[in-house]
Design a protein around this nucleic acid. Structure first.
Length: 170
DNA sequence: TCTCCGATTCACT
DNA sequence: GTGAATCGGAGAA
């Protein structure tokens, strides 16, 4: 059921589309368990990807992306929204999948707000965490691809990569 | 220290 | 379609 760390020990371009349709499970501090089906993800791939935070190299902030596959990377954007990512590939290869929407929540900021996800989950491993994990219940999505959102600053070459994955069945 | 700006969302015009 | 909210990371000074 719970996806193991090995699932994430592959290139992000394989992992990101395969996460679509999986169940994101969140257990809040008060013990409430919520399961949401992931309907949209994006891939951020290494230091050469100008849209990836790791394009700036290894810094305190991007350190998590260089860690073991399955590590949870969470950061604050625009001073108000937490973004949820899962690190892929072996150690020292900085790649991550952004969970863009799941269940009834469209938009990464709304998703993390609904699930009460903040930086205190940062750097934990999603394969070995009692507060957040991912399950496979056999659902098969119908995937469409599109350019990533909000990364125009990275230049056309990277902004136009079809690295966003959407479940057309929703 | 100081300045710039972002993997977003929402309220307006 | 435009702009504000809001703050920490990264780089320059």
């Amino acid at each position: 059921m719970k996806l193991p760390a090995e699932f994430f020990d592959r290139d992000v371009l394989f992992v990101a589309p395969e996460l679509v349709g999986k169940l994101l499970v969140r257990k809040t501090d008060d013990g409430e368990v919520v399961k949401l089906r992931i309907s949209e993800t994006e891939a951020y791939r290494g230091e050469e990807d100008k849209a990836c935070h790791a394009s700036k190299g290894r810094t305190p902030r991007t350190e998590v992306m260089y860690k073991y596959p399955g590590s949870i990377y969470i950061y604050l954007i625009y001073g108000m929204y937490w973004m949820l990512n899962i690190v892929t590939e072996k150690e020292n290869v900085p790649q991550a999948v952004l969970i863009r929407s799941a269940g009834d929540y469209g938009g990464p900021g709304k998703l993390t707000k609904a699930l009460k996800i903040t930086k205190d989950l940062n750097s934990l491993n999603i394969s070995d965490c009692s507060l957040l994990w991912i399950e496979d219940d056999g659902y098969v999505p119908d995937i469409a691809v599109a350019p990533r959102i909000g990364v125009d600053y990275a230049g056309e070459e990277w902004a136009l990569k079809p690295w966003r994955y959407i479940d057309k069945r929703n």
